[in-house]
Structures are given as C-alpha cells and as structure tokens.
C-alpha cells in the first residue's frame, strides 16, 4: 500500500507540476515538455496501481494501457513539433518580408537573423538557410496583415 502510494503520489505530483509549467510558461517547447511530464505522471499512476500487494499478480491491463498512452503521447508530440516548426517558418518569413520592405524604404534594416530551431550533433548544411525555406504562400496579404483572430 505505501509503495503504491509513493509511486502513484509521485505521478500525481508530476501531473500537477506539468500542469503548472504548462499554464505558466509562454514558450511552446516548454509547454510541450510540461504536457509530456504531466502525461508521464498519469502513466505513473497507472503503473503504480497495477500492483496491489504480494498476494495478487500484477495487473497487465494498466501496463497495456500505458503502452497505448505512450504511443498516443509520442504521436501528439511529433505533430506539435512539426506544427511548431511550420509556425516558426511562417513567422520568420513574415518577419523577413517586413525587414525586406523596410530595407527597401530605409535601406538600413536587415532581416532578423534566423535562430537555429534544432540542436543537432552535426552541423546543418547551408541549404537550410536559403530563401527556399520561405514558401511564397506565406507572403500573402493575409499573413502580412493578419486579422487578429479575436476580432
């Protein structure tokens, strides 16, 4: 009983910590890590409750549920990361376009430097920084002058 409570309680604390971090932090990657920690906490609870003392065999059902949950979490994380990268591209291209129009008028402002979005063990090729990254459709008037969604 005390062992399960220790493990399960740790899961609940992880859930609360993840929730706090998700609500407090602005940066998307921190939010994503936070939600993964919260998810890990929930999975922790499932693992803890599978074992209810020496007399009974551990319950395989929560273990299987956690495996399913992990795959779901991985999928969601992958999609969030891909959306995040696409958003950064769109914002950089919008910023670049603004910079370009400014430099055209004032011939002083330079486009803001791109920040590396991924940490990699090897260096990225220079191709990553070519204007081919800036898809033309991001330069439509809607992106340059977005209507704020909140009307």
């Amino acid at each position: 009983m005390s062992a399960q409570f220790l493990y399960g309680g740790a899961g609940i604390l992880l859930f609360a910590l993840g929730l706090w971090s998700l609500l407090v932090h602005e940066a998307l990657l921190r939010k994503l890590i936070a939600i993964n920690i919260a998810g890990g906490g929930v999975f922790h609870v499932f693992i803890a409750i599978a074992y209810r003392g020496d007399t009974a065999p551990p319950d395989p059902v929560p273990h299987a549920l956690v495996l399913t949950g992990i795959v779901v979490a991985v999928s969601a994380t992958a999609l969030v990361l891909a959306l995040h990268r696409r958003l950064e591209q769109a914002e950089e291209s919008a910023a670049d376009a603004e910079g370009r129009s400014e430099s055209a008028s004032a011939s002083s402002a330079a486009p803001p430097p791109r920040t590396p979005t991924e940490r990699t063990p090897t260096e990225r090729t220079p191709t990553e920084l070519t204007p081919a990254d800036l898809t033309p459709a991001d330069l439509t008037p809607e992106t340059l002058h977005p209507e704020t969604p909140h009307g």
């Binding site: 995040h84 958003l87 769109a90 914002e91 439509t140 977005p146």
Partner: peptide, 11 residues
Amino acid sequence: TGKREAIAANL
C-alpha cells in the same frame, strides 16, 4: 491552409 494564424490556433 498552412497560414500562420491557422497553425498558431491549431497548435
């Protein structure tokens, strides 16, 4: 749509 607002909103 790939538009910035759509991606931000759906994220």
